[in-house]
């Protein structure tokens, strides 16, 4: 299989590999995929109070295209807002990395991982808000 230069670059020099504290209230974590399918992506975002994404990290088990898709996703996430991040489409990843048809599922997985991380962060925010409301109600 021939890989595009961009896939090779991300594979050889993956951006933002790492982990953040998944229990932190300002960190959203998305884990998608399954070992039996040969790819699992974990994507994390750290979000400021105003919705800006301050940092993004990933870890991926999967083929080179899966690694590249998640590495690229973290690059795009950093500095953007959760609302804009939610609009990232897998087709943009396909285009940027020149993924062949058999690797499109890697880009879909990356989009799912972004959505899952945002959803996790949103749920934490809602829970924190509820907690805060609850506290103010009893005082």
């Amino acid at each position: 299989m021939a890989y595009s230069d961009k896939v090779l670059d991300h594979y050889q020099n993956p951006r933002n590999v790492g982990a953040m504290d998944k229990n932190a209230s300002d960190v959203g974590t998305g884990v998608v995929g399954a070992p039996e399918c040969g790819d699992v992506m974990k994507l994390q975002i750290k979000v400021a109070a105003d919705g800006r994404i301050l940092d993004a990290k990933f870890k991926t088990y999967g083929c080179g295209s899966a690694i590249a898709s998640s590495s690229l996703a973290t690059e795009w996430l950093k500095g953007t807002t959760v609302d804009d991040a939610a609009k990232i489409k897998n087709t943009q990843i396909v285009e940027e990395l020149a993924l062949p048809p058999v690797k499109i599922h890697c880009s879909v997985l990356a989009e799912d991982a972004i959505k899952a991380a945002i959803e996790d962060w949103r749920q934490k925010q809602a829970a924190a808000k509820q907690n805060a409301d609850g506290i103010s109600g009893t005082i």
Binding site: P14, V40, K42, K59, Y61
Partner: peptide, 8 residues
């Protein structure tokens, strides 16, 4: 493996 969420 250092990059693998499974290993983590």
């Amino acid at each position: 493996r250092d990059m693998s969420p499974l290993w983590e």
